[in-house]
């Protein structure tokens, strides 16, 4: 084979020699960016499927089964695509590659936020999401805290090796659910003492960094799924869901209006959020107005029979 371009030639001028070195650095970075970008695309696709799955929970005969299936999928995402990204980012400044994985990450946050809302009826915080994306390093020094806390019902708790895709050299995500780390990662980074971007807190781990702004954009998208669910639930005869969802969405909406000047992106999402909220409020209204025509107990009967279809 002919000699590779990257190799040095005897007859190069000093300038050309220097540039051959530059080339390697450029190629390395571009290749890494490309690999992360492709992983992000996969994550986007999987997250969209996950959301579809979760939309079937309300009105399902066996919601627990669906949630378990979702947890399985989330776990699989951690142990494959996210782990691979974490490997790529090890020793790197993750902001350099943020553009490569932000879109997959946001879609993932939308999905996982939705999952936790369905499981725990609350908005999951960034800290929990971030922790699930911390992995032990491959050069395995025995890690003390690798024993899982079984109190956690999330997908991260599922650490048995029944998943065939989880072979020996693929580590499991770590779950530091002890509180000593606090919510440091939602704290302002620039002034924080730890540096979650790229270098993880101790030298035995690596991570996929989740910047708070990406988290919030994912949360905004999540409210769109809440709206879909609320509207669907009316058809399924579920009379309480719209009101519960509206309450949750109002809290988020009010919060967003407080910092909607932070970026054009957030402002755009806020306006979509407001539209979604109004759709849910209209659903609540419709239930009230229609419900006014018969006594409450009879209303419930009617909807229960309707839901049975």
């Amino acid at each position: 084979k002919p000699s590779k371009e990257g190799e040095s030639h005897a007859d190069d001028s000093p300038i050309v020699k220097a540039f051959r070195v530059f080339q390697k650095e450029l190629d390395n970075r571009n290749d890494r960016f490309e690999r992360i970008f492709k992983l992000s695309r996969d994550i986007t696709i999987e997250s969209k499927r996950l959301i579809f799955l979760l939309q079937r929970v309300i009105g399902s005969d066996d919601p627990e089964k669906l949630l378990a299936e979702a947890a399985e999928k989330i776990h699989e995402l951690h142990s494959t695509k996210f782990l691979e990204i974490a490997k790529e980012l090890e020793g790197q400044d993750s902001y350099q590659y943020l553009r490569a994985y932000t879109s997959g990450l946001q879609e993932y946050i939308e999905a996982v936020t939705f999952y936790y809302y369905l499981s725990e009826q609350r908005l999951v915080n960034l800290d929990k999401i971030q922790k699930q994306l911390i992995f032990p390093k491959l050069v395995s020094v025995p890690v003390e805290s690798s024993g899982t806390d079984s109190q956690e019902a999330g997908p991260d708790a599922k650490q048995d090796n029944s998943d065939p895709s989880c072979s020996d050299d693929q580590p499991k995500p770590m779950d530091h659910s002890d509180d000593n780390a606090g919510n440091s990662s939602t704290k302002p980074e620039p002034t924080g003492s730890v540096s979650p971007a790229g270098a993880s807190e101790d030298k035995k781990t690596m991570l996929v960094h989740v910047p708070p702004s990406e988290y919030m954009l994912g949360v905004a998208d999540f409210t769109g799924e809440l709206m879909r669910m609320a509207i669907n639930s009316v058809g399924a005869g579920n009379l309480d869901t719209p009101r519960v969802v509206a309450d949750m969405m109002r809290v988020i909406h009010n919060a967003f209006t407080v910092f909607d000047n932070a970026s054009r992106e957030l402002r755009k999402k806020t306006s979509v959020l407001r539209q979604s909220l109004q759709k849910v409020e209209t659903a609540c209204y419709t239930l009230t107005v229609r419900g006014s025509e018969i006594p409450q107990h009879m209303l419930t009967d009617v909807f229960t029979s309707t839901a049975a279809s």
């Binding site: 609350r122 908005l123 915080n125 960034l126 919510n183 939602t186 704290k187 302002p188 980074e189 620039p190 002034t191 708070p212 702004s213 988290y215 919030m216 309450d247 949750m248 809290v251 988020i252 919060a255 407080v258 910092f259 932070a262």
Partner: peptide
């Protein structure tokens, strides 16, 4: 619902710090 509120307060702080640094 308090915890949800906390999340947003944290986020606001994050934005403020970022703004000041810039």
């Amino acid at each position: 619902m308090a915890s949800t509120q906390d999340i947003f307060t944290d986020f606001q702080e994050y934005l403020n710090a970022d703004h000041e640094l810039r």
